[in-house]
């Protein structure tokens, strides 16, 4: 099956052969699979919902013409990913609002034709990174060795050798992006694992979203959440002026990227009042809102 022969580098050239086959003789399937996956990353669901399976066991595309158009554009542009991204991100479909419309809903209840944006929860890693970012503690340094977030004792106790092969990341190292978290197969990090990060040993076609009690316990009481709430409180204390009103307004801007409505402002201020003026409990609530967890 593989063409024999030697490359200039003296290797057998099998990888080059595979690349050529995938991009040429393999037909447009490779391009379709790739653009579908990019589409899934942006919209939460691919034009073919079974992104790992375009075969007989997979689902039919919801919009075959669009899939072919994108695949064609991708090939014509010389497999230019940036071109593909621009095409999708500049489209009306990507920019459509999540507003609900009964008439459209009656005709297309599953929103297959994407007449509105389907809100969806962010991935576990993105939620952690977003929290670090809005509280001002994210360390954006790229590359380098993996990081080891602090794990509570009961989590380490699940190992046959508790704490084995789990290092310690000093200071701001632990606040790097989640992609740098050391992936130890037998020791999932609760903040990530409870929010449906996939098992690292199997292929994950698409993330699942589950909602559980233990998840909420960790999001409310866990050390990471508590720490981020404290950081956010410190930040709005300095950036929001001396008065609670300005601090609440700043928190809304940082966490939700918008102004608080008069009613939200009222609710927040009376909460602060009842909590003896402490900002941390308020920040913890704001960091757990659906609006923060969902791409709207």
């Amino acid at each position: 099956m593989f063409e024999a022969g030697k490359t200039a580098a003296g290797t057998s050239g099998r990888r080059l052969w595979l690349a050529r086959w995938l991009s040429g003789a393999g037909g447009p399937l490779t391009a379709r699979v790739f653009v579908n996956r990019v589409w899934q990353w942006h919209f939460g669901e691919g034009l073919v919902a079974t992104a790992n399976d375009f075969g007989v066991m997979g689902q039919r595309p919801s919009n075959p013409e669009l899939l072919d158009f994108l695949a064609g554009e991708f090939i014509r542009s010389g497999w230019n990913v940036k071109h593909l991204q621009k095409l999708i991100l500049r489209s009306n479909t990507f920019r459509v609002s999540s507003e609900w419309d009964e008439r459209n809903a009656a005709r297309d209840p599953e929103q297959t034709l994407l007449w509105r944006w389907k809100p969806r929860r962010l991935e576990a890693e993105v939620i952690r990174d977003s929290a670090l970012s809005v509280t001002g503690s994210l360390n954006p340094a790229m590359y380098g060795p993996s990081i080891y977030p602090d794990l509570p004792k009961p989590v380490l106790a699940q190992q046959s050798r508790p704490g084995d092969n789990w290092g310690k990341s000093p200071g701001s190292e632990a606040a790097r992006r989640s992609i740098y978290i050391f992936a130890k197969r037998g020791l999932p990090v609760p903040e990530i694992d409870l929010l449906d990060a996939p098992d690292s040993t199997v292929s994950c076609e698409r993330r699942r979203v589950s909602v559980t009690g233990p998840q909420a316990l960790t999001l409310f009481n866990g050390a990471f959440s508590q720490q981020q709430a404290a950081r956010l409180a410190a930040r709005i204390r300095t950036e929001g002026g001396g008065a609670p009103k300005g601090q609440v307004a700043r928190a809304f801007q940082l966490v939700l990227g918008r102004d608080a409505s008069p009613r939200e402002l009222d609710d927040s201020l009376s909460f602060l009042n009842a909590s003896g003026g402490k900002l941390e409990p308020f920040c913890l609530v704001l960091l757990n809102t659906n609006e923060f967890f969902y791409l709207n």
Partner: peptide
């Protein structure tokens, strides 16, 4: 008090009737 505040501030962007509203309320 925190849960009460979360119930007030945290529900959005739930839209009555939209498919994701079950999930958002469940959260």
């Amino acid at each position: 008090r925190q849960l009460d505040l979360l119930a007030k501030l945290g529900r959005g962007p739930a839209v009555a009737g939209a498919p994701e509203s079950d999930e958002l309320n469940a959260r």
